[in-house]
Design a protein around this nucleic acid. Structure first.
Lengths: 246, 246
DNA sequence: ACCGTCATACCGCCTGATGGAACGGCATAT
DNA sequence: ATATGCCGTTCCATCAGGCGGTATGACGGT
């Protein structure tokens, strides 16, 4: 009696358990077998077998007292990750998909001191669209983008309520509207803001709702790729409209 | 100590395959499924299933073109490794075991510019022993320790011949003898020198042989813990005796 | 000497990993 | 256009191999 959601290609259970075991090392240093088994809800013999494999490949090492610690291999891989990481590689495809789905312009901004910096931008496929300089460094304004980057403590990602999305119109100038949400990286840190923008008259209430949907979906995908643990699902986005006076 | 020898417990095959798959990412950035399957000698469906699990846990990510790349999780773990790593934690237990097995003093030196620096030292359990200041910084001399650290290109670790071990007597002073071999870290880089030393008259030919044996065993264990890939076994150590004039 | 907890060994059950074969998509070569 | 690869992916019959309840023996604290 299989449960409802049929998955295309299944993973390998033993592997996911082993990786979960590895995850249990974040934070404090060395851990004993029983400790690890409890933290991962695995039977001790099972955890032991997995650890033997992790050790043989250098992902963990055993200290002289029998406790386990992360091995040098993970640092080697971490170094490889660093040297091969290019942000555009991850952000641009997301922006492209967003621009195509919404038929408006999509952009990715980061916070730079007290300004917002547009790192990447993909133009709307429509002839009438908003024009903005990429690489522009402007003050943290009251646009939806600015508001995302100003929001230091981002409200619960998993508080049951939907992901927070900001919408603004005719703030940056008298013609432009935008919808934005947050992108997170490792350690839940705010990585940047994902924004869809265009001529204000095209951003009617129901358009904003559907754009917000796409936006949240895109932001979740990007965040998880950047290392933020994303809770499985969520309520529909909760949209907060911004006025020019903020 | 009742030792931790020969563990009967087997590892988990699927896990080792998945980790091997991860290893295949060192060096260049993104790889396709077929490429990975060939590099690891896995069937494509198998590799795919393993990758699904690796991806679900954030150890790899899929780019928009379907290729795979290391995920942010490995960097997170690498950072944890760095912050929890303490060299003494790994070196001291090895020195202790060496000192106990050989009943002589054991030390770990690293190269510092053109000098050798004694980082750790465990004294011989015998009353008559050599005395040396730990933390001493002395020139790269012709002692066995100095010779290990001077040897830039270490001869084949897997050329079939035994691990190279140096032995010297009455070089540092007129009383002391020592036996040393190399310890490696990530990327096969020379990490330091492991040395057993004591009164020269105790270091007879057959003692040197048995000390060399212990030394190689200890060095291999330490090297593998520090991230150097150690070939499975080897011929008996090849001992090279050094004269005072070097 | 007691007890709790540790890492590890044993072993039978049965799930779940395995890989050969086949499919559809997308290039490039013909 | 047609053909030829190679790609990632799905299906499925087979059976190895992972699983975990239980048992053991060694510590370490009281």
């Amino acid at each position: 009696m299989p449960p409802a959601p049929t998955r295309k290609t299944q993973g390998v259970n033993a592997v996911e358990r082993a990786l979960t075991l590895l995850d249990a090392f974040v934070g404090d240093g060395s851990r004993g077998l029983a400790e690890l088994a409890k933290a991962t809800a695995l039977a001790k013999p099972t955890a032991l077998r997995l650890l033997v494999s992790l050790e043989r490949l250098g992902y963990v090492v055993r200290l002289s007292d029998g406790r386990y610690q992360l091995g040098a291999k993970v640092m080697q891989l971490g170094a490889t990750y660093r040297s091969n990481f290019r942000l555009d590689q991850h952000v641009l495809p997301v922006l492209q998909r967003l621009a195509e789905a919404t038929r408006e312009s999509a952009a990715f901004h980061i916070r730079e001191k007290n300004s917002r910096l547009c790192l990447f931008r993909v133009e709307s496929p429509q002839a009438v669209r908003d024009f903005q300089r990429p690489a522009a460094l402007v003050a943290l304004d009251s646009t939806s983008t600015g508001q995302v980057l100003k929001t230091a403590a981002w409200p619960g990602l998993d508080d049951g309520r939907g992901t927070l999305v900001f919408a603004s119109a005719r703030v940056y100038d008298t013609q432009t509207a935008s919808v934005s949400t947050a992108v997170f990286g490792a350690g839940q840190a705010l990585a940047g803001a994902l924004t869809v923008s265009g001529p204000a008259e095209r951003f009617t209430a129901d358009v904003i709702v559907s754009v917000a949907d796409e936006l949240v979906q895109a932001a979740r995908g990007l965040s998880s790729v950047l290392g933020a643990p994303m809770p499985p699902v969520s309520a529909p986005p909760s949209i907060q409209h911004l006025s020019a006076a903020a």
